[in-house]
Design a protein around this nucleic acid. Sequence first.
DNA 1: GCTGAAATTCCTCAAAG
DNA 2: CTTTGAGGAATTTCAGC
Lengths: 152, 152
Amino acid sequence: MPRQLDDATDTLLASMLVADGRATLKTLAEATGLSVSAVQARVRRLETDGVIRGYVAQIDPEALGLPLAAFISLTPLDPRQDYEIPDLLADFSEIESCHSVAGDASIVLFVRVASPAALETLIREVRKRANVATRTTVVLQTCFERQARPPS
Amino acid sequence: MPRQLDDATDTLLASMLVADGRATLKTLAEATGLSVSAVQARVRRLETDGVIRGYVAQIDPEALGLPLAAFISLTPLDPRQDYEIPDLLADFSEIESCHSVAGDASIVLFVRVASPAALETLIREVRKRANVATRTTVVLQTCFERQARPPS
DNA sequence: GCTGAAATTCCTCAAAG
DNA sequence: CTTTGAGGAATTTCAGC
């Protein structure tokens, strides 16, 4: 159960680290008006409390050879196994996110693949593995994509 | 036009930086068997070539006060302005991603908000701003969510 | 909680092979 | 690409408030 952000200082730290995950303690200290040590202690606490889950490099999907993205909606053929589906899909590296949803489908996946052929292969394997019907929406263009930011 | 990843070493570097965006050059050097200087040059090249777009901290959305996520599908009421829609939506900080898609809708958004009431407000504003009909799918649970990784 | 300072590690750049 | 070295910068740790 993750905490809320305590105060304005933590919120500022989180904002800055979302904008630049490699911001130095010195930079953060200057922005907050605290000492480097104090900032370090706060950031450490945000990390151990799970507010900051980690730091990642954002890689261009095309450079990875994954230029094609798609949403795949899943409808279980056997509703009894509904809750097991995410576990069955965790191995597929092509799946970037897996959301259980309220709506026509039970689950919505966001996937990245190398080609239309790879998408077809993935869809078939997901159907078989999870025993689901699928409905796929191909992404034509990603207009923008960004990290959730603290609401000012 | 972003380059492909050149070789196995660049792929390994990218993988490691996706797993830990704060990995030190020394760590990367040990994993690749290269010198720190060589790794530094490679990472720099990946950055300037746009393969590495940046580094970000991943923040727990709940800690930010944004526990509710949803997909919103947009259908333009006036198809002539189709291509302008993403620009009109860029200011909404609640919108995490905006994809143009092939399917029933023209555009699919992924959004994070504080509450059902905030979701309703957002939907109304999106409709008005972009002159679209909307179809919203509420996320009940995010089973997993991860960065695209280089396919082994 | 915070500060400040010392000790350590890391980054950056250059030179030379 | 490698190694080396030097200078600066960042991180860590710890004493003290």
